[in-house]
């Protein structure tokens, strides 16, 4: 999962500006009509200063030794304020991960802006995710020191929350191609998280050719293209 959690430095472009769905009237489906979904980052933007202070602190001391007080000091807020916004360490770490998801979605929005087909867009999503993993000091440190520490954010309730956030971010980016963007987004988000998580890698996620073959073989056949009849499924 960690591969999709951080944008490369310097790519903090406005995702809405690079979002092909934003300028596409046909993207006005129920998902895109939701104002939060129209701007992928807006749907998932937590308190940025706190999140960045938390990530910096994780990078410095690791997740196990993360201190809520140290984060409050670094963010320049009182302990009481911090607890009001993020009650406890799991909430703080969850908010920091949400922040990284938002940054990843912003980077992916830039990466898919030039895509000319669904295969291109999905491959760009995976490649951008994998590239950004290497640049996340905080998450890279957790994964190197103690990958099990992320399990509460990846499985069961935590996993559903992460999947929902990533789905919210990716759905508008898939609207130009997919008959049911939310369904397609959850499918792509799930596979992206799984690819980064599995101990037996299915592909080299930094190899564009391998990623494209993987996407064309296993991923996009599961997405009904726009203009086709969307497979019958209950709404969100």
């Amino acid at each position: 999962m960690t591969a999709v959690l951080r944008a490369p430095t310097g790519s903090a472009a406005d995702p809405a500006a690079a979002d092909p769905a934003a300028a596409d009237p046909a993207a006005a489906d129920p998902a895109a009509a939701d104002p939060a979904a129209a701007d992928p980052a807006a749907a998932i933007r937590p308190d940025a200063a706190l999140a960045e202070a938390t990530l910096a602190e994780i990078a410095r001391v690791g997740l196990a030794r993360l201190s809520v007080d140290a984060v409050a000091r670094a963010a320049g807020v009182s302990r009481a304020t911090l607890y009001r916004r993020c009650p406890g360490k799991p909430a703080l770490v969850g908010a920091a991960l949400d922040h990284e998801v938002a940054r990843a979605v912003a980077a992916v929005a830039v990466a898919v802006a030039d895509a000319r087909a669904l295969d291109d867009a999905v491959a760009a999503m995976f490649l951008t995710g994998a590239r950004t993993l290497a640049t996340s000091v905080a998450l890279g440190g957790i994964v190197a020191a103690d990958p099990g520490a992320l399990a509460p954010y990846l499985d069961f309730a935590g996993g559903d929350a992460l999947l929902a956030r990533l789905t919210d971010g990716l759905a508008p980016l898939l609207a130009p191609w997919a008959a049911d963007p939310r369904r397609a987004a959850e499918w792509v988000a799930r596979i992206g998280i799984d690819l980064c998580r599995t101990p037996t890698p299915l592909i080299d996620p930094t190899d564009p050719g391998a990623v494209r073959r993987f996407v064309a073989t296993f991923v996009t056949p599961g997405i009904a293209p726009r203009g086709s009849a969307a497979p019958k499924e209950e709404g969100p």
Binding site: R190, I191, I193, R197, L202, I203, F218
Partner: peptide
């Protein structure tokens, strides 16, 4: 379709759906 890769793909995604069914 590479059968080993397909088995790994279905196993990985299937296990993830068990714990995190999403929609």
């Amino acid at each position: 379709v590479d059968l080993d890769q397909a088995a790994g793909f279905v196993a990985t995604v299937g296990i993830s759906v068990m714990a995190t069914p999403g929609r």
